[in-house]
Computed example of a mutant assay.
Amino acid sequence: MMDTIKSFKGYGKIDEPEEREFRRETRKRLIIIAVSAFILVIIIVAFVVGSTTHKDEKNDSDKSMSIPSTISVGDSIKTVCNVTLYPKSCISSISSLKLEQKTTDPEEIFKLSLQVAFNELSNLSSLPQKLIAKVNNDPALVAALQDCQIQFEEAVDQINSSISSMQVGQREKLLTDSKITNLRTWLSSAITYEQTCLDGLEELNSSSSKAVLEEMKAAMRISMELTSNSLAIVSKMQTLLDKFNTPIHRKLLGLVAVAVVDS
């Protein structure tokens, strides 16, 4: 019986070398698990950081396709005016306006282009009468100049209609497709009225009318350029809004740039 008990107690007993080997194998497994977990954490962190960096780079790339939100007023005017046939007169005329509030909004810059076109054309309204006083002995030329007076008034009305259409309430859109169509019609008409004045003078083809024609052309050059600029800007408005990353949007009262017209 005692032998049986001793034999039972000794059953399964591990000697010291085997126990040391077992412990060594256990430590090795634990080290492998710890190292694997550490590497896994590093891989996850690297993936997250890489994804975030790629997203930021993509956003930066997308932003570079449009005009920066921090663009200056001068650069905004230049960008808008570059779609016109006469960018120099566009930039100089708008930049010379005294503004109560600066703006980088292409829609507001368009309004300023209307204002300078209106100012310049209004300044021409007295020119036909001044020229009539010089050529009152030529009835045909006087009649042509009187017609110019009427054409100028019509042109002023067309630009004034354009300006009025841009005065909107709090819940109205500054520009809509139908309004853009109307603006293009009004501005095209204004240019046509101005050109009709010159055509009438040119048809006379007399020595005195040629001199008046050249004087009238010189006086009207800037006016016709500025009206053409406004027409070009509104015709390219959707392209400009896309470039500035600005939709045709609703305006709030008080955010409109107001031009101070010199008397």
Results as ranks from 00 to 15, higher is better:
residue 30 L to I: 08
residue 100 E to K: 11
residue 121 L to A: 09
residue 158 Q to G: 09
residue 98 K to P: 01
residue 190 A to P: 00
residue 194 E to S: 10
residue 54 H to M: 15
residue 82 N to I: 04
residue 176 T to S: 15
residue 179 K to V: 07
residue 140 A to I: 07
residue 125 S to L: 09
residue 114 L to A: 05
residue 248 I to V: 13
residue 6 K to I: 12
residue 242 D to L: 15
residue 253 L to H: 06
residue 32 I to G: 01
residue 94 I to K: 00
residue 221 R to T: 11
residue 185 T to V: 10
residue 21 E to S: 09
residue 117 A to T: 08
residue 222 I to N: 05
residue 81 C to I: 08
residue 236 K to D: 15
residue 226 L to G: 01
residue 58 K to E: 15
residue 40 L to M: 07
residue 251 K to D: 12
residue 257 A to Y: 03
residue 231 L to K: 12
residue 174 L to W: 03
residue 8 F to K: 02
residue 55 K to A: 15
residue 254 G to W: 00
residue 72 S to R: 06
residue 88 K to I: 03
residue 235 S to R: 10
residue 96 S to A: 13
residue 185 T to S: 07
residue 201 L to W: 02
residue 179 K to C: 04
residue 232 A to V: 06
residue 244 F to W: 08
residue 193 Y to F: 09
residue 138 D to R: 05
residue 251 K to A: 14
residue 156 V to Q: 05
residue 210 K to P: 01
residue 86 Y to E: 03
residue 137 N to S: 15
residue 37 A to F: 00
residue 56 D to Q: 15
residue 196 T to I: 09
residue 112 L to D: 03
residue 248 I to A: 15
residue 222 I to P: 00
residue 116 V to F: 00
residue 201 L to D: 03
residue 107 E to K: 14
residue 230 S to F: 08
residue 186 W to Q: 11
residue 179 K to H: 06
residue 93 S to N: 06
residue 73 V to E: 15
residue 15 D to H: 04
residue 54 H to E: 11
residue 63 K to M: 11
residue 20 R to F: 01
residue 78 K to F: 02
residue 157 D to Y: 09
residue 105 D to F: 02
residue 205 N to A: 13
residue 103 T to L: 06
residue 139 P to S: 14
residue 125 S to T: 13
residue 240 L to Q: 07
residue 46 A to C: 10
residue 250 R to H: 12
residue 77 I to N: 03
residue 218 A to F: 04
residue 204 L to S: 04
residue 103 T to P: 02
residue 237 M to K: 02
residue 240 L to F: 06
residue 229 N to F: 04
residue 112 L to F: 09
residue 215 E to Q: 13
residue 169 G to Q: 09
residue 212 V to Y: 04
residue 41 V to T: 05
residue 190 A to F: 04
residue 231 L to I: 06
residue 11 Y to P: 00
residue 32 I to P: 00
residue 50 G to V: 12
residue 211 A to T: 11
residue 258 V to D: 12
residue 239 T to S: 15
residue 18 E to I: 01
residue 181 T to D: 10
residue 68 P to L: 10
residue 240 L to N: 01
residue 165 S to I: 09
residue 170 Q to H: 14
residue 76 S to F: 05
residue 170 Q to A: 15
residue 124 L to V: 07
residue 148 C to R: 07
residue 16 E to A: 12
residue 179 K to M: 08
residue 177 D to V: 13
residue 23 R to L: 10
residue 132 I to N: 03
residue 235 S to D: 07
residue 183 L to R: 04
residue 73 V to P: 00
residue 138 D to N: 14
residue 148 C to Y: 02
residue 240 L to V: 10
residue 248 I to W: 13
residue 104 T to H: 10
residue 16 E to N: 08
residue 75 D to K: 13
residue 22 F to M: 09
residue 15 D to W: 02
residue 10 G to V: 01
residue 12 G to H: 03
residue 180 I to P: 01
residue 97 L to W: 06
residue 199 D to R: 00
residue 67 I to V: 14
residue 174 L to F: 05
residue 239 T to A: 14
residue 66 S to W: 02
residue 224 M to I: 10
residue 253 L to A: 13
residue 233 I to P: 01
residue 32 I to F: 08
residue 82 N to R: 02
residue 143 A to M: 05
residue 20 R to Y: 00
residue 70 T to E: 10
residue 148 C to V: 08
residue 185 T to Q: 05
residue 14 I to R: 03
residue 196 T to K: 01
residue 104 T to C: 10
residue 68 P to K: 08
residue 248 I to R: 15
residue 109 I to K: 14
residue 79 T to E: 11
residue 92 S to D: 15
residue 231 L to Y: 02
residue 98 K to V: 14
residue 184 R to L: 08
residue 161 S to Q: 13
residue 2 M to R: 15
